[in-house]
Amino acid sequence: MAVFACAGCGAVLTAPVSRVALPVHARRSYGHGLLPALMEPGTYAVDPEPSGPPWRGWSEIGAEEAAARGVFAPVRSLSFAAPGAIAVAPGDIREVALIPERCDGYCLGLDGRDGPNLACVHCGRAVATRIDDCSYWQAVWLAPGAVRRLPAGPDRPTVAWEALAEEWEDTPPVEPSGAWSPGWAAAVGTSLAHLVAASAGAPVAVPPGLPAEMFGPALDVLLPPGRPARRAVLAGPARPASGPAPDIALVPRQPQTGQVWQPPGTTTAVPLAADVWLHLTFPRARLPVPVTGGLPDGVLRDDPLPLHPWEPFRPDREAFLHTLARLPAVRQPWLREVYDRVRERPYGRPF
């Protein structure tokens, strides 16, 4: 466990928090309503990439400098701020006050456009940015150069791979409104970039059911037909791949450390957010009768109704492009053509 303190005066600014991997949807926006908190209470995550101003356009940066910063295909702009912003839940922040002149936003709250908008109440140092506007995940982003990490007790034990299914929660793909979960859209968009890169330009066959619904239509659009399909399966702890060794395995990313589970042999690993992987791999059947009590003979449960989406699933296009631009493989001509096609057609299939 740790707390974060003001680098200026040493005042403690957070409750004790434990590190987890940065959620894949952390920098994605969604819809026009208020979204929930990005981070679970008592946790924090570090963004390894720079974020926020100053920004520089692609024509100013150039391909060589961008590649040195881990970006291998054209993007509109890149942040040249310091990497390492720290995300915490708004309820875990302490001893800070809003900076009134930096409280602009688009619609219903703060979007951080003016830079850090929270200051330490003890010394006045700008230390963090609160985000709570519509379309954005609510979070407080601590500026890496403005805070210091201090120990605050033993760390939470890391969940073992073998215990992942028992100790970590999955996330349903459909929200109560009938909309697809934006977290799923971002997770699938991110993994789709890895999956397309792992295809080597050949079609990819994914398992039937929900995995096919998530990935199948996008793979059909993005990859050319005609070559023998590469076989992709769900694999991971307590879920060994069955049958002949697959070409590609969709595997979980450890939710605390971010480590990717490695399949045996020469199978290529494609990482998938752990909560999404768990739901795809170990779907929880909805009981037709109550756990306690009972229903009359011949009567099955009809409340609550099962959740069904009201539109086809679409992966998050921005998550796909962001991830693919940061894979060195995108410099291959066939994969660069996929990237350019998606980038130039913002409303094209399958996004």
Rank of each mutant, 00 (worst) to 15 (best):
161 W>Y: 09
6 C>A: 07
60 E>H: 00
230 R>D: 04
331 R>F: 04
284 R>C: 15
54 P>E: 02
256 Q>M: 09
267 T>E: 07
33 G>D: 11
40 E>M: 07
305 L>G: 13
136 Y>P: 04
16 P>Y: 09
120 C>S: 00
119 A>I: 01
242 S>G: 13
98 L>A: 14
265 G>Q: 06
277 W>H: 05
111 D>G: 00
170 D>M: 11
25 H>E: 08
168 W>Y: 14
12 V>H: 01
335 L>W: 04
246 P>S: 06
145 G>Q: 15
305 L>F: 11
317 R>I: 01
208 P>Q: 11
177 S>G: 14
234 L>Q: 02
112 G>H: 04
119 A>W: 00
278 L>T: 07
195 L>H: 03
301 R>V: 04
48 P>Q: 08
256 Q>I: 08
81 A>Q: 05
314 R>C: 15
41 P>S: 07
89 A>M: 09
333 P>I: 07
181 S>V: 05
95 E>K: 11
300 L>Q: 11
4 F>H: 00
232 A>G: 07
272 L>E: 02
25 H>M: 01
23 P>V: 10
17 V>T: 03
289 V>L: 15
152 A>Y: 06
232 A>N: 02
162 E>M: 10
338 V>L: 01
282 F>K: 05
185 A>G: 01
324 L>K: 03
7 A>T: 05
342 V>H: 04
348 G>W: 10
147 V>E: 00
273 A>K: 01
311 E>T: 12
294 G>P: 08
16 P>C: 09
202 A>K: 07
268 T>E: 11
347 Y>P: 04
167 E>C: 12
144 P>H: 10
156 R>H: 13
319 A>P: 09
188 V>D: 03
243 G>L: 03
138 Q>I: 10
154 P>I: 10
223 L>H: 04
221 V>K: 12
160 A>S: 13
20 V>R: 08
99 I>M: 13
296 P>G: 11
152 A>M: 02
32 H>T: 14
273 A>H: 03
284 R>S: 14
40 E>D: 15
69 R>F: 00
194 H>K: 04
75 V>L: 03
246 P>W: 00
90 P>H: 11
232 A>D: 00
172 P>Q: 03
177 S>H: 10
153 G>A: 07
158 T>C: 12
11 A>L: 15
333 P>Q: 12
186 A>T: 00
67 A>Q: 01
132 D>A: 06
17 V>P: 05
249 A>Q: 01
241 A>Q: 07
56 R>V: 02
20 V>Y: 04
93 I>W: 07
342 V>L: 06
327 L>V: 08
59 S>C: 13
335 L>D: 02
120 C>H: 00
305 L>K: 12
174 V>F: 05
252 P>T: 00
294 G>M: 13
283 P>K: 12
101 E>A: 13
102 R>I: 02
1 M>H: 13
215 F>C: 08
219 L>Q: 03
7 A>G: 14
124 G>T: 05
180 W>R: 06
95 E>C: 09
320 F>R: 02
10 G>F: 03
183 G>C: 10
7 A>P: 01
254 Q>G: 12
88 V>C: 06
271 P>K: 08
183 G>S: 11
273 A>N: 03
1 M>Y: 12
129 T>H: 01
303 D>W: 14
129 T>F: 05
